[in-house]
Design a binder for these strands. Structure first.
Lengths: 244, 244
DNA sequence: AAGGATTTTGGACGAGTGTCAAGATTTCGT
DNA sequence: ACGAAATCTTGACACTCGTCCAAAATCCTT
């Protein structure tokens, strides 16, 4: 019975159990228990892999749909259509809509930090670091505009929907660490320590990026260049090296 | 015929004409045209006032509902319920849902700038100005949290829904001017000119406020105090007076 | 190749949505 | 106080939504 794969342990991190756990224990006795256990383990692992793979696939389809339409206008049917499957399959791989969206937020983080990891430069001088970091920011502003738009949408949703808050906070923290690394390295290279804490620094960069995104999506052609200049300025300001 | 009060001129700023404009011109000829015209004008003005008054009333109800539930979860019936009227009346006073939301965004601006106008202080010293401004920020963070939450929600929506963009941009500009006034005055009092443009300064304050709001709504009791301190720091940073 | 488990489909469901129109009610100039 | 115009209610409409389920299709072990 029951294609219901969801345990009550979903709050412990979306642990997935195939079928009824009791059944696995009550395996057929026609073979030595040890060998059967090994085989069952191998098979189970393969199945879990396939299961996770499809989850990722559907999650990516959802991510694409969300970034196109925004949270308020995205329906499960639309997501399914973007995935090539029928709408019913979503409830086979995800508990419900909140489960799917939460999974997407987590997945977004993976995509996001990966992109930003490329930004962690190996620049030798402060000027070089500033230029590379600003360039990466401007590039992602253009290339991943719809993804960033989704991020700000979901972060706003988390102000209303408590279920999202933990994941959103985690992503925010990870972005803050990224900014912190850049600022620290920059300060190290210039020899002038930062004039504010990492939280404040992140808030400043985030606010600037958000403003740039609004302009970029509104079709302002100067948005990327202005962001690039803004980032350079901001690095100087944050290390107290700015001149009026 | 036709309770349809909407002209095609709604894009010129929601100009409202009562009934069919042609009918007004074809007024009864049993009286001198001039007297009839004056009287009609007086009556029309009164009616328009009443109409506008109810619009404001419904708009406020919508604003309250939106700030409670967020854009994605707010329905016209819920708004009507919060207003004490039936759901049908909304289409008597507003063209459609977008019209209503747009009206709300504009109305939010009125509420918002009014609150911030109180913030425009008459402080005599830089320290006093910083303290008062920071205090006002911290206060509104607590008192108007749900309203600010709505603002960030709607600003995110404007990234998807183009209809909102113009109004959102206008509010953003007005907030930027507010920040600009404070920073300019502060710089004037300290004698140290700002180290960045008003756009960058606004982005920084906005980012900080947004981060504080997230923490405030998550129940972090230190959020207001941290914002207060952050604002003071930020004023110093922005005028290049910060020390590591 | 068979047969059981897994995966996928597509339809049904009830609730909720925005919109509209016809009728009841109220307002207000005469 | 009358009657027309303005205002408000009510119910209906055509959708869309998330969710669930039985059956079909597919996979995979034996």
């Amino acid at each position: 019975m029951s294609r219901f794969r969801w345990t009550d342990a979903q709050d412990v991190g979306h642990r997935i159990l195939r079928g009824n756990p009791d059944e696995a224990v009550t395996a057929p006795v026609t073979r030595p228990a040890i060998r059967t256990g090994e085989r069952a383990d191998r098979i189970a692992r393969r199945r879990v892999d396939k299961f996770e793979e499809r989850r990722r696939e559907l999650g990516d389809a959802a991510l694409q749909t969300l970034s196109e339409l925004g949270y308020a206008r995205t329906s499960l049917r639309e997501i399914a259509q973007n995935s090539g499957f029928s709408h019913g399959v979503l409830h086979y791989y995800f508990h419900d809509k909140v489960d799917l969206i939460t999974y997407c937020v987590r997945r977004y983080k993976a995509v996001c930090v990966q992109r930003y990891d490329d930004v962690v430069t190996t620049a030798g001088t402060a000027v070089q670091l500033a230029a590379e970091f600003a360039g990466a920011m401007a590039t992602t502003l253009v290339d991943d505009a719809v993804l960033h738009r989704l991020w700000y949408d979901l972060r706003s949703q988390s102000l209303f929907e408590e279920s999202f808050r933990a994941d959103v906070a985690e992503i925010d923290a990870s972005l803050e660490r990224m900014i912190s690394r850049v600022v620290s390295r920059y300060a190290e290279l210039t020899g002038t320590p930062p004039v504010c804490g990492t939280t404040l620094a992140y808030a400043m960069f985030d606010g600037m990026f958000q403003q740039s995104l609004l302009r970029q999506l509104s079709g302002d052609p100067a948005a990327p260049a202005d962001l690039r200049a803004g980032v350079v300025d901001m690095l100087a300001i944050v290390t107290g090296r700015a001149h009026p």
